[in-house]
Write a protein that binds this DNA or RNA. Structure first.
Lengths: 142, 142
DNA sequence: ACTAATGCAACTGCAAAAGTTACGATTGAT
DNA sequence: ATCAATCGTAACTTTTGCAGTTGCATTAGT
């Protein structure tokens, strides 16, 4: 797996689930499909569960499924659930305070980055999980 | 230094330069200001030079300065110059082709991520370097 | 010549994330 | 009651990207 794999894995899995909302999938199935490890899957999907996007059941017939309708889940929900912060945050800045202009400039840079982050999330809110699912999907018959 | 430090360093430096467009700065000066290392500065600013945003001169009175007016440089220019790809790109996908739905879904996920990346760049294009510079700047007198 | 600067390559060190292993807890099937 | 399947989680190793560092060749002004 590469970079940004968490977001990619999450979108991938949710999109699969959107195709067959009733089906329960195990972390092993999902990991095989995604070419990764069950524990990694549980880590990532655990975040989505905390955010109320997925349900998981332990035990023999356990596994993962959508906690709500796929068309009510946006990319922003997923992004925020993983608490990835793609854009924001500059440095700690503690050691830079000796320069008179640094304080203002640092905070201004941080401000701009936060602003961009916020508008990115707004943009993500416009796309639903169902929009990610391919229209011709031989696998789930949709 | 922390995460996103390249983008942060670049914005920081360009913003400084926007305040005093004529002044030539050495990588040592810049590194001191930013609390980092001259070589790191040259690495990052070298990318900006390749993109035509900065000029550098070797030799005794050498250093760095803006290659064009600060208000003609957008955050998108900087972002693309550093070729950071914050959002995009899923995995290599070679090992996933055994699943019938994977091909379509993978490309669809990649498509969505590319789309997000593109809209991020669009958003970045709306902010100029001069917008980052604090209005009250005791350092450069602007 | 000497000095001050960039350019660049090679290396180290570190931190974050993936990957792995192991084991306990829970649930359903038999 | 036992067994097998599954999640939950902790601990560890491996990988990777990047900052940081060192060293040196090159360039340019004095």
């Amino acid at each position: 797996m590469k970079r940004n794999s968490r977001l990619s894995l999450a979108l991938h899995t949710l999109s699969h689930m959107a195709g067959e909302p009733g089906r329960v999938r195990t972390s092993v199935d999902i990991a095989d499909h995604a070419g990764t490890n069950p524990v990694v899957v549980r880590r990532v999907l655990g975040k989505l569960r905390e955010a109320g996007l997925l349900l998981s059941e332990k035990g023999h017939a356990g596994g993962w499924q959508l906690a709500k309708a796929a068309d009510s889940i946006t990319l922003a929900d997923v992004y925020l659930a993983l608490d990835e912060r793609l854009v924001a945050r500059s440095r700690d800045n503690a050691e830079l305070s000796n320069c008179s202009v640094e304080t203002g400039l640092q905070s201004r840079v941080a401000e701009v980055l936060e602003d961009i982050e916020a508008s990115l999330v707004e943009r993500l809110r416009e796309t639903k999980i169902t929009d990610v699912h391919p229209s011709t999907c031989s696998y789930c018959g949709s």
